[in-house]
Every structure is written in C-alpha cells, then in structure tokens.
Simulated assay, not measured.
Amino acid sequence: MEEKRYKTIQKIGEIPTGFGRVSLNKKKEKICGDYYTVITDQDSTVLVLSDGLGSGVKANILATLTAQMLSIMIARNMDIQTAVKAVADTLPICSVRNLAYATFTVLVAKGDEICLLQYDNPDAVLLRNGKNVEYQREILIFGEKEIHQSYLRFQTGDMLILMSDGVTNAGMGKTTYGGWGREEVVKFCEQRYRKGMSAQEMSSIIANAGQDLNLDETDDDLTVLTLTGMQKNVVNIMVGPPADREDDRSYFETFFQKEGMRLVCGGTTAKLVADYLKEKVIGIADSGTKEVPAMSKIKGIDLVTEGLLTLQKVIDYYEEFKEDRLCYNRIIKKKDGAAELFRVLFAEATEINFFFGNALNENYTALHIEREKKKKLALQLIDALEAEGKKVKICFWCV
C-alpha cells in the first residue's frame, strides 16, 4: 500500500468529507502535547489522535510516537486490534498519577464503515440530523487498559467529533467543579449545530467555548477534530480571461458546461462574461471596504468580485486562519468579497474547477503591477485549498 500522509481528509467511502481541526497549546507552552496524523489511500483512511501525559515537548513526543506507530501499523494492514494491543502494551502507567503516558483515539474508515478504538480520550460524539446518536461500545481489556471499540456507518449529514480531554476538563476549578464533561459537550454541540455548518466551524466553536470556560486561558492542551459528511458541491472559479482573445469563446463555453456554482474574479473578466451571457454587470452598493473592492452581480453567476486585491485578501485571510484556526468563524461572518470567496471555497466547496487566464490587464500595467502577481496569487490559493483537503482541478491555464 502506498501511504499518503495528510493533515486532512477528503472523503470517507464515496462521501465527500469536511475536516475541521483546532489544537491549542497549554498556556506558556510552545508546542502542543496533543498530536494527530492521517494516512489515506484509495480505499481507506486511518486517523489517530493522541494526548501525551503532561504538556510541552515531553507530551508531544509521547503523543507523536503513539499516533505515528498506530497509524503506520494499521495503514500497512496489521489487524487493528493487534496494532492497538501492541501500542497499548508498550505504554506504561505513570505510578504517581496512575495515568497512561499517552491516550489515543483511532479511526479507521473503509467504505462508509468506521471503526473507532478509544483509549482514555473522551468518547467521540456522533451527531445525526443535529442530534446525538448513542453508538454501541464493546470493551476490550489489554492488561490494565480498557479500550472502547465501536463500529459506525458514516452518512451524508453526519458530524463526528473527536477530542482530547482538554475539552471535557475545561473550566475545572474555575467555572466548573469537575470540568465541562462529555454530557455537557454533547448538549452544547446539539444546541450549536445547524444544517450545513462546516466541520471547521464546529471545531472552532467547541475550542472557543473551552477557552471561555478556562477564562481565556488554556489550562491543558486542547484538540478538537470534526468530520462532516457533505453533499457534493462543485464550485467553478474564473480568474482572468485568456491571454489570447481568440480563446475567449472556448474558455467561456468550457466554464459554463461545468456543473455547480460559478464565481468570477476580476472586473475585465466580469465584463467579458456578461457580454458572453448577453447580460449586464451591476454593482452591489455598500459591499466594499477600505481593503476589498465592492462586489457586482451578473445574472447566471453566483458571485462576482474584483480580482487582484480581493484574491490577495483571501490569501491574507487564509494565512490568518492557518496561524490561528479559532479566527475561522470570525472570517466567514464578514460580508466583503474576499470573505464571501473564502467561505464558498474553504467551507462549502467539495470540488473546485479553477479557470485561470493570464491576460495582461492594462490598468495594472499602468500601476506597475505585473501579471505574474495574479499568477502567483492563483497558485497560492490553489495550494491553500489543497492543503485544506479540497479537490482542485485546473481546467484551463493560458500562459
């Protein structure tokens, strides 16, 4: 088996899968004591979340070794229980705190069936139609260690939430007596759930609530991983017309033959698209900001934005999000063109057809802005989308 190690998940079986994650370091620590890894191939996905005892470098080493050993053994077709037993047997118990040196949650997906093996992490939460589903747990005993084994069918619309105990212990001794607790976390997730919400939105909401209970601190490493079964949602985005105007008709024909949403970036591109459709470009009043130009609308197009400055702001939003995943919910609530693009591409899309034209824009030439800038931004955006698990296809590239 050829292993592909990612930090994200694209699908489970034939179900497009959104994957949201937040990991927060314990206060004053430079590295997180929780660690997760994902290995995928064409037929299966192996995800392991591990929580090392304590915090900082030592905890991170313990968690990393545990997660990587488990994921590699299972990905190489070792029997799941054998792999879990091998790792569980090698993990000693701290004699002082009577706790395992590392805990873990293992998720193995083959087709639409998920096997969960959970050792001392809070049990995963499964929401179906926004309501908690109590799934069966078989208890396996390996030495002194009790492991919960479960089998689930993953469905479109399901939301599966994995977490470290930094979530369930949130607020302990501050705002809660014994921590937030799994039952209260479940109730919170049910209350905050809404149809169509992204996996990242749920992860960020849970992590934010944990911080609030800790009075804006992180008293322990805290990790939330959320998987959602999504409906297929194809998005076609056009950035610029072709360099050769003779290619315009075939370029637009190909764009409009594709199924799914249609986004157009760039004023010149919008005018050419409107001409092709025999429609008008209509400006949307009060949709601009100091940083992001106003949006427009064209009948038959789902979203029309300005080009270069808007794309740059989308990249800026992504860099901000990559550094602090808690800011995701703040970004998607903004109403400017860049935030709208960010929301559609990063939250809603499952597949993206990227139409890039490298025509020279005379307005940018006058401002000494090279067309290579637009090309660079397009490449950065494609890289960012792929890093977040989006399936991206470049349908047209004219250089």
Rank of each mutant, 00 (worst) to 15 (best):
D89N: 07
D219W: 15
T254G: 08
F255M: 15
G179Q: 02
E291C: 01
G143H: 00
Y151G: 13
G181L: 00
I141G: 08
T156G: 01
E386P: 03
T269K: 01
E362W: 15
G13Y: 07
A100T: 15
E29M: 12
K313M: 14
T45G: 07
A75D: 00
T310Q: 07
V125Y: 07
D41P: 03
R262V: 00
A109Q: 06
E217R: 10
T223L: 03
Y6D: 04
G13L: 01
T66Q: 01
S95W: 03
K187A: 07
I369K: 05
M172N: 08
C327G: 13
N361S: 13
A270K: 06
F188N: 10
F142D: 03
K187P: 08
I141S: 13
G357P: 06
Y135D: 06
A59I: 13
I74Q: 14
T365N: 09
S50K: 05
M230T: 05
E253W: 08
R5K: 03
A86R: 14
T268A: 01
Y35P: 10
T269L: 02
E372T: 11
A67Q: 11
L277C: 01
I141E: 15
L65G: 08
V304R: 09
R262Q: 00
L91E: 09
Q118S: 03
T365L: 13
Q68V: 06
G260A: 02
A349D: 10
G389R: 08
N329T: 14
Q42M: 01
T218F: 05
A243S: 12
A274I: 04
L117A: 11
K390I: 00
L311N: 04
D275M: 08
G300H: 06
E348I: 07
T289F: 02
R153C: 02
A338M: 10
M238G: 05
A378V: 02
Q149N: 13
K11F: 11
T310A: 04
A63N: 08
I161M: 03
I332K: 04
E246C: 09
K28C: 09
I332N: 06
T82R: 05
G260C: 03
I301K: 06
N329P: 13
A170Q: 11
E320H: 10
D158K: 11
L160E: 06
V399P: 14
V304A: 10
T223P: 10
G111Q: 00
Y119N: 12
C327K: 15
I394F: 01
A59Q: 08
V264N: 06
E320I: 05
A83N: 08
I352Q: 05
E29K: 13
S150L: 01
V239M: 11
I394L: 12
R128K: 04
G166P: 14
Q136D: 04
A124H: 14
G20Y: 04
D79T: 05
L379E: 15
K85V: 04
T305K: 09
P16I: 03
L47Q: 03
